[in-house]
């Protein structure tokens, strides 16, 4: 039954080989992002488990739908109808504004903004690394999900996709400690980069000097720089601005608008800029690298793609 003289390399040799293999895998995974294929294959194996773990919650939602009373359904329906009407009225205005905007852009010679594709995905309720903020979604490469794809909800930007499997994908939230998103202040167009703090309801704006015009309550929207997130989606509101005389930069924190730890449905956006020849050189893999890396990495895509803003950004930097 148990062979006394075991075949093949000894356990020590095997251990050393496997540890070295792990180190090699980690290096390749971190530096060159070449292991997405392996990861997505393994994630397929894992999908049944995730699905099973998620089943009770799915069942709960299903039960809630099935056993809701006529009264609540009617009430909800009425509520949606009113909201629909309200939205329609606002959309009428938006329609006119959009046309006006397109006309003005034509006058300016700027490129028109094209429509974006959307897909609703559900969050699979499974826990991942407790020290990071990741979510698992039930859509994968089967639905053309790509690495670096923006994830939003009805309130604002949630994060972006980092791993894609055939049936599921993993997204990183904007508050993850290794995530950063280029934003601008809605009020005055001031550009900044919002770093995740590792805390689910806090973002940090670093490297802004004391005299920056930013106030508590300002809304931060995506600036669209870096060709990653489409422009003008709300991200966060500024919650505190501390100007400590002893420090080089102001300490600014913001609260994400998206409901990062609630809700079950998210929206996946196809950023039309992916078709942009300027961005074509950037493969999705390098995208992941630029966003989830050291702060020095983050400036690269901007200087490569958006000429003018990068100039301004560097000017801002030199002022600092």
């Amino acid at each position: 039954m148990q062979s006394i003289f075991s075949q093949g390399p000894s356990a020590s040799a095997r251990m050393i080989i496997l540890v070295l293999a792990s180190l090699a895998l980690m290096t390749v995974d971190h530096r060159w992002h070449q292991l997405e294929v392996v990861r997505s294959a393994l994630s397929t194996l894992l999908y049944p488990l995730q699905y099973t773990v998620d089943l009770p919650i799915r069942f709960y939602y299903w039960g809630e739908e099935v056993f809701s009373t006529r009264q609540t359904l009617l009430k909800k329906n009425r509520e949606y109808e009113t909201r629909y009407l309200e939205n329609r009225v606002q959309l009428q205005k938006l329609d006119i504004l959009q046309r006006e905007n397109a006309r003005l852009r034509q006058l300016l010679g700027a490129t028109p903004e094209t429509a974006e594709r959307l897909l609703i995905a559900e969050i699979i309720k499974v826990d991942v690394d407790p020290n990071r903020q990741l979510i698992v979604l039930n859509k994968g490469s089967h639905n053309d999900i790509y690495v670096g794809q923006p994830v939003i909800d009805a309130q604002g930007v949630m994060g972006q996709v980092i791993h894609v499997g055939p049936l599921s994908s993993t997204a990183i939230l904007i508050t993850d400690i290794s995530h950063a998103i280029p934003v601008q202040v809605d009020r005055n167009g001031l550009r900044a980069i919002a770093f995740g703090s590792g805390n689910i309801n806090e973002l940090e704006l670093r490297n802004l000097p004391h005299n920056t015009d930013i106030r508590v309550g300002d809304t931060l929207v995506t600036s669209g720089l870096g060709n990653h997130f489409p422009a003008n989606y709300p991200v966060a509101t500024v919650t505190s601005v501390k100007r400590l005389p002893g420090e080089l930069f102001a300490r600014i924190s913001a609260k994400p608008l998206a409901l990062l730890d609630q809700g079950r449905e998210v929206l996946l956006l196809w950023n039309n800029k992916a078709d942009n020849p300027l961005a074509a050189g950037e493969s999705p893999k390098t995208d992941g690298q630029t966003k989830i890396g050291t702060p020095a990495d983050k400036d690269k895509p901007k200087s490569a793609t958006d000429k003018q803003p990068s100039k301004q950004a560097s000017k801002q930097k030199s002022e600092q």
Partner: peptide, 29 residues
């Protein structure tokens, strides 16, 4: 043995979203 541990570790890495090999190396040791 260590090989099954390594495979399990890789699966852990995929499910936790850590680098491939991060948990695996620890588990192997």
């Amino acid at each position: 043995g260590v090989i099954s541990a390594w495979l399990a570790g890789l699966m852990l890495d995929v499910s936790y979203g850590t680098l491939l090999g991060q948990q695996a190396a620890g588990l192997v040791i």
